[in-house]
Amino acid sequence: MILPCPPLDRSEALRYLGVRGEAPDDVTALLSKAEALLCEKVKPRYVWRALDPPPKFPGEDLKRHLAGCRTAVLFAVTLGQESEELFRRAQSGDMALAVTLDAAASALTESCCDLAEAEIRKAFPDRYFTFRFSPGYGDLPLSVQRDMIRLLNAERLIGLTVSPSDMLLPQKSVTAILGVSDAELPKARRGCALCRMREQCQYRKAGEHCGF
């Protein structure tokens, strides 16, 4: 299913570019150019599927995340191959534009997830949702990407595939799981303190965060 291209969250894109404080004029101009190019080219797509009961994936964190949920919604979002042609080309001509396109596309992907989630929620009025949980969060391995793609028939429906190293292709894509519950869920608990992987986590070592 095709999603409308959401407006670019510029502050998010600037954050990915490492810009702190007010953005200089030339960076702002570059971001506008990247936004225009992406909005012209990109065709975001998403696919989802409600599974009742939720699928059995390895690890404890997802299980805990879905506690109390009878249903799980699997979904995938992709900006499509169109955006990647832009990066490849820019990397052989204008690297500054390439990194800006990359950051803007990441921000757009995140916004597309929000749009997709809003659409999905409409199909379940009066139900309660967990936050989005993706392969790679906590101890849910990236190898689950392959199962997600197969369960969603995402290759056929939105052209989303997985590489042999469990990388989603096209690159600007996300898969995620939402728990759906009849009863109100306890306030979402997330963060490194609760994560079983916190001691080995590469994100955490780098002072970053996987999103869990």
């Binding site: 490492g18 200089p24 030339d26 960076v27 500054a96 534009l97 990194v99 800006t100």
Partner: peptide, 14 residues
Amino acid sequence: EGKLFLPQLLRSAA
């Protein structure tokens, strides 16, 4: 020093 950002660094390189 964080006074100039990646796209600018790359523009200068170009």
